[in-house]
């Protein structure tokens, strides 16, 4: 680092120490301008591309505006909101979304933590194993959706082919009401189990070794060690991962679009997908905006929860 330090040590330093208050104040002033100049371009972009559109959506949500019909928008105040909140269709989508989010996130958490635990007990080949397990997570949902659609194809999909060779019957994975949602959950679980695994592994490797040694001297059973040492220490980090996944699963759109397009019927239509249909197929822009604003509210609540736990984790 020494080559980075210039050799002009004496002169400016002396000047600064000779008149301490004045340069201090001007420096703080220029610091403030520097901070404003460095931060505002990024904030301006966010204001233009995130905040302004949301405010516009908020305005539209109180009107009957339609993107195709054009013409001036009429204020209808809370009509859109009451229509959405009382709609049986929306309730059904909310239930589908809930089943999907809870099902997928639970499966991912259990599987991801199990894999992380198994990997953390290995001493050899951990780097390689972790890298291999992480592949699904880095793929685009488009690629994942397309590929599973091919594998789950009722006619020539490889899954049914394997079931066939095991002597089991064929399953119409994506074209039956009951199995389509399960398929969606399975595919999401396949893609995002590595995410939970990665974070759980970070938590597991951070558990101090001496705790296990102490417990082993006390002849504590393995289950006891897991319950009283491993789980409490990993849980805060795991909770962050779970909340993060819940937010992501709630906003999910691309996988549904590619894998099932909401079908068969409306059995895999999540809230995100329903908003898309209202906005871009029905062109009820006002209603869709209100729908969207309600979803944003849910996301904001979840994000607040996430950030609160994150803060708590950082303070510890």
């Amino acid at each position: 680092m020494s080559d980075l330090v210039p050799l002009t040590t004496d002169h400016p330093g002396q000047v600064a120490s000779a008149t301490p208050p004045a340069p201090g104040r001007s420096r703080r002033l220029s610091d403030r301008w520097l901070a404003v100049g460095f931060i505002s371009p990024a904030l301006l972009l966010l204001l233009a591309m995130s905040v302004f559109p949301l405010l516009w959506a908020l305005y539209l949500s109180f009107t009957d505006y339609s993107a195709t019909r054009g013409g001036p928008a009429q204020f209808v105040w809370f009509e859109n909101y009451t229509a959405i909140l009382t709609s049986a269709q929306v309730h059904l989508r909310a239930l589908t979304t809930l089943i999907y989010v809870v099902g997928a996130v639970t499966l991912q958490t259990v599987l991801g933590f199990a894999i992380a635990y198994l990997i953390s007990r290995r001493t050899h080949g951990r780097g390689l194993l972790t890298t291999l397990f992480l592949v699904p997570m880095m793929l685009s949902p488009v690629v994942v959706g397309l590929f599973w659609r091919f594998m789950l194809d009722a006619q020539f999909g490889v899954i049914n082919s394997m079931l066939g060779s095991l002597g089991l019957g064929q399953v119409e994975w994506l074209t039956r009401q009951q199995t389509a949602l399960i398929s969606l959950i399975v595919v999401d679980t396949w893609q995002w189990t590595p995410f939970i695994m990665l974070i759980a592994l970070a938590g597991l490797t951070a558990v101090p070794k001496y705790l296990y040694e102490a417990a082993s001297i006390d002849r504590a059973s393995e289950w006891f060690r897991f319950r009283t040492i491993t789980l409490p220490l990993v849980w805060p980090l795991l909770l962050i991962a779970v909340l993060f996944r819940a937010i992501e699963a709630f906003r999910l759109f691309d996988l549904v679009y590619i894998l099932t397009s909401g079908g068969p019927g409306v059995s895999t239509e999540t809230l995100s997908f329903h908003v898309y249909k209202v906005a871009f197929l029905g062109f009820n822009t006002g209603t869709a905006s209100a729908y969207g604003i309600l979803m944003v509210l849910v996301v904001i609540v979840l994000t607040q929860l996430y950030l609160r736990y994150l803060n708590k984790l950082k303070e510890d």
């Binding site: 302004f52 959506a57 908003v275 898309y276 979803m295 944003v296």
Partner: peptide, 9 residues
């Protein structure tokens, strides 16, 4: 923010 919502405005 959900992309499907942001994309409307």
């Amino acid at each position: 923010m959900p992309p499907v919502v942001v994309v409307i405005p």
